[in-house]
Structure formats: structure tokens, C-alpha cells
Computed example of a mutant assay.
Amino acid sequence: MVLHRAVAARALACLDLTDLSDACDAAAVEALCTRAATRHGPVAAVCLWPRFVAQARGILGPNSAIRIATVVNFPSGDGTIAGTEAEARAAVAAGADEVDVVIPYRALMAGNGGAVDATVAAVRAACPTALIKTILESGVLADDGLIAEASRRAIAAGADMLKTSTGKVAVNATPEAVATMLRAIREAGRPIGLKAAGGIGTTAVAGRYLALADDAMGPSWAKPATFRFGASGLLDDLLAVLDGRPTGRPATGY
């Protein structure tokens, strides 16, 4: 039980508490920001649609330990480079600290890897002070070689973190995809983080991903600066473990 609580505490500190549901509204944003400051400490970030960034900044304040993340080119990855760049720039101007950008993964699958390079580089240039997480949509890429290529291209174009998934497709984070992404991170030659997102709803599942990171990168690597969970339902299970209450809620996506 002590070990289980230690895992929950690690995961809580690395959590991007997320509401990217179609039903998200101002009341939901206020509730999410309130929940993010838990009795066991703050989560790493809240992750919201761009239209709610300014509201979240107003609730959390300018110097909050809880960061504000948003998404661009989301969820399809099919937006124009100019549109994605403008969306990212506007989000940071509204108060976002972190930008999760979906790469044009369908273009990559069709053989146009340069589209990934150009999209990530444009967002990086538009938002030089923001943390840039690149969403690979690994469950759709599926192939280990494509996931590895997407990882290498995103890193080369300026990404700060690799993220598995939007949480909006049938297959989201998997241990196999995360292992491939961790290999690319290990070979990057500069510090790169990882965000596992979609389908992570229990402390036990979160613990498996932390163990993968520990094995690949060392036991002190997975911390908020380098490792995140993207989830909407994980927080309840983590708090139950930390409180010593019964758990076992099934995993969900966003």
C-alpha cells in the first residue's frame, strides 16, 4: 500500500488534468481549475480548448504552480500550417504555458514526413517560450517504424515533449508506443519529455507507464518537467489511493 501511494503521488504531480470534451463550458473550466489544486498537492497542468485559456488564466492567476496547456491542430492534425501557427500564437498570448500540437500524422503515413517538420517548426518559432508537446497519434500510426520516425522528426523540429495521443481515436496510449518514443528520446542528444495520454484511468495503469520510463531513462527521470499523463478521469483514482479509499475505476479516454 505504501508503494501504491508513492506511485499515486508521482502520477499526481505529473498529471495534465484535461477537459477536451465537446460539452466543456465555462462552468466545467472553473471546476477543473479548482480540482487541480488537490489536498495532496497540485497537478502539473490543466489542459483545455484554446477558447478557455484566458478564463483558466484568470482563475489560476499569473504565477500559479499549475500550468495551462492547450491544443492546436486538434484533433485531426489536418489544419494548415498558417492556421496552426496562428492558433498557437493566440493561445500563448491568452495565457497558455504549453501547446500540445497534433502533427499531420496522415501526411506522414502517406509519405510526406516534411509536413511534420514544417508544422512543428512553425509552432516552435511562433511560441519560443512555450513548452511544445507534439501529439503523434501513435494508435493510428500503429507501425513502430512510423512512430519512431514521427518521434525523430518532431524532436528535430524543436519539440520539447512527445505525446502519444489525442484521446479521440480508438487506440490511444500503449506501452509499446511509449517504449518506442522513449528510445527516440534516449537517442535525441538533448532533453526531451514524454506525455502518455488517453485510456489511463487508474493508478495501476499509470504505474506501468512510470515503470517503463524508469527502466528506459532511470528512476529519477520521470518528473513533471519531463513526464506527463494526459487524462480526465485519473485524478479521482489517484486521490482515492492517497486517501486510502477503495479504487479500481476502469480506464477511460478524455
Results as ranks from 00 to 15, higher is better:
17 L>M: 01
53 V>P: 13
93 A>N: 06
232 S>P: 06
19 D>K: 11
25 D>F: 08
165 S>A: 13
213 A>G: 05
248 G>C: 10
169 V>A: 07
247 T>I: 12
107 A>R: 13
141 L>A: 07
123 V>Y: 03
161 M>S: 08
43 V>Q: 01
13 A>D: 01
75 P>Q: 05
166 T>L: 07
151 S>Y: 12
174 T>L: 10
233 G>R: 15
184 A>F: 03
207 G>Q: 02
46 V>Y: 01
206 A>P: 08
101 V>D: 10
37 A>L: 08
211 A>Y: 00
224 P>V: 00
202 T>S: 15
133 K>N: 04
173 A>D: 09
40 H>L: 08
19 D>A: 13
14 C>R: 02
102 V>R: 14
203 T>L: 05
200 I>K: 12
227 F>H: 01
175 P>W: 05
46 V>Q: 12
43 V>Y: 02
132 I>H: 02
170 A>L: 08
100 D>P: 14
137 E>K: 03
19 D>F: 07
124 R>T: 08
20 L>N: 04
24 C>W: 02
93 A>L: 05
176 E>C: 03
110 A>V: 04
36 A>G: 04
242 L>A: 03
232 S>F: 01
40 H>F: 12
247 T>A: 13
129 T>I: 00
143 D>F: 04
87 E>F: 05
241 V>T: 13
204 A>T: 06
124 R>H: 10
199 G>N: 10
207 G>L: 04
134 T>N: 09
245 R>D: 11
71 V>K: 08
231 A>I: 07
25 D>A: 12
89 R>I: 06
138 S>D: 10
187 E>W: 00
235 L>Q: 01
76 S>R: 12
212 L>T: 02
111 G>W: 05
99 V>W: 05
100 D>I: 03
135 I>K: 03
73 N>R: 07
216 A>D: 02
16 D>R: 06
233 G>K: 14
105 Y>Q: 06
86 A>N: 12
24 C>R: 11
239 L>Q: 14
238 L>F: 09
197 A>Y: 11
123 V>A: 10
219 P>M: 07
40 H>Y: 08
178 V>E: 05
165 S>C: 08
108 L>A: 10
155 I>L: 13
149 E>M: 15
58 G>R: 15
254 Y>V: 00
229 F>I: 04
210 L>M: 08
138 S>Y: 00
143 D>W: 03
146 L>Y: 07
170 A>N: 09
188 A>C: 07
77 G>N: 12
194 L>F: 02
249 R>M: 14
211 A>I: 01
222 A>G: 06
80 T>E: 09
51 R>F: 00
39 R>N: 01
